[in-house]
Design a protein around this nucleic acid. Structure first.
Length: 417
DNA sequence: TCTGGGGTCCTAGGACCC
DNA sequence: TCTGGGGTCCTAGGACCC
């Protein structure tokens, strides 16, 4: 039998902040989305105060003030780096592992055959905590979906953060009371649909007819049903290169003129190209979109996008910026207050598969891009940038309360006095 | 005043092929 | 009255994840 363990960091962003500022221990913490717009992560204390996930910050101002909640802008450089440390630590404890998200990983533990699985997981937890300062919970199960369920139990109902759902008895007991909407892969629409069919608890989905579930929830739903039964259908996935790369952000303030939008877009394009080169791919098409602020109902609204197919696949920032500007020129209309723009690179192919052209070699200058990337990696992003990215950047997003990037910026290292 | 960003997979339907 | 069968590729839309 396969044994999957899902390791999930507890309140990851909040825990990262605490590692570098122990005074935050025991204090309610919330972390904000880009532009300080919404609350995207909370410490247990903040959850206990009833602060919901994903709501706009301004709606929670009163409760935040009343309870002296610590508020942080998101610090993705810090979280990304801490994530890597956690993943590196986990990798030492399993032969096979899938990094599922910034704060979660699946491990296959059966190939190792630890004598005492539970003790082994306790060791993993202790080591990750010791090496990174991040507390984790571990769910163990015969399939990924059940390991996810076990992790849910580990977080909510255990003291030591570990739960093993491999026994039939444990599965019966937990699935009987677990709401169907809490299952990995079943959310809003699907759980509503299941409820209408009279399926409210996970055990009912497990025991339903696979054919009927497939009819309503496609093969995706059927797979989940089978996984709940203990038949493993979803395997660990290796690192795969992305099939599309997106970079988009809301502006710090609404923009009407084309130039600053173009400048912001050039920055997002540069960011997307960095990611593209990092996975050693080239893009065949560039898609650009613009949006007004849909929440301002009295403002005239305009949302549009345009796709440009490149004659030759490339990862050269200059060519992508040029293409992005062309796309923007096709959709930009004066007279609107724009909130957001973004770029999506699609049709990604490995650089090695690139079809060369006889007379034009658009990628001959890629050594230049490699040097730009290298310098920005060594000396901090934006050390070198393209003229089109501008210098004033009046559109820049707000991030008023970001903690220092303790682990990735020389001048922001933790000071010990 | 203020409302995130970045992905994946599956299906249905249309265009087109022989 | 009555109009085939079998396939591929692409796109848009809908669902999900963190």
């Amino acid at each position: 039998m396969k044994i999957f363990a899902l390791v999930d960091c507890n309140n990851f962003y909040a825990s990262c902040e605490r590692v570098f500022d122990p005074r935050l221990k025991g204090r309610a913490i919330v972390i904000l989305s880009n532009n300080d717009g919404c609350i995207v992560a909370r410490s247990n204390e903040a959850k206990a105060l009833g602060i919901p996930m994903g709501v706009p910050l301004f709606e929670q101002k009163a409760i935040i003030k009343k309870h002296n909640v610590a508020v942080f802008s998101s610090n993705y450089q810090l979280y990304g780096d801490m994530s890597q440390r956690v993943m590196d630590s986990l990798r030492l404890h399993a032969l096979d592992m899938e990094v599922y998200s910034i704060d979660e990983a699946f491990l296959r533990l059966d190939p190792l055959q630890p004598r005492n699985l539970y003790e082994y997981c306790k060791t993993i937890r202790a080591k990750v905590l010791q090496w990174t300062g991040i507390p984790v919970s571990i769910g163990i199960g015969p399939t990924k979906v059940l390991a996810k369920v076990a992790n849910h139990v580990a977080k909510k109902q255990t003291d030591d953060g570990i739960f093993d759902i491999r026994s039939q008895q444990a599965q019966d007991e937990i699935l009987k009371t677990l709401d169907v909407g809490k299952i990995w892969g079943i959310a809003g629409r699907w759980s509503e649909r299941l409820n209408r069919m009279g399926i409210n608890k996970a055990a009912q989905l497990r025991d339903a007819s696979p054919t009927i579930i497939r009819k309503h929830l496609s093969v995706v739903g059927e797979r989940i049903l089978r996984e709940l039964k203990g038949q493993s259908c979803i395997d660990l996935e290796g690192v795969q290169s992305k099939k599309s790369i997106m970079s988009s952000k809301s502006f710090g303030k609404l923009l009407t003129k084309k130039e600053p939008i173009e400048e912001a877009l050039a920055n997002y394009a540069a960011r997307a190209c960095e990611k593209l080169r990092k996975q050693n791919s080239r893009a065949q098409a560039v898609h650009v979109f613009v949006q007004t602020n849909g929440f301002r109902e009295t403002d005239p609204q305009y949302n549009n996008g345009f796709t440009h197919t490149l004659t030759t696949p490339t990862s050269d920032t200059r060519l992508i910026i040029e293409a992005a500007k062309f796309c923007l020129s096709r959709i930009y209309k004066p007279g609107y207050r724009y909130k957001k723009t973004g770029i999506m690179l699609t049709g990604l192919i490995p650089a090695s598969l690139e079809q060369k052209q006889l007379f034009v070699d658009v990628n001959h200058h890629n050594p230049l891009m490699a040097i730009v990337d290298r310098i920005n990696e060594d000396h901090g992003s934006d050390t070198l940038f393209f003229g089109a990215q501008g210098v004033n950047r009046e559109w820049k997003m707000r991030c008023g309360s970001r903690s220092p990037r303790y682990t990735t910026q020389w001048d922001e290292l933790l000071m010990v006095r």
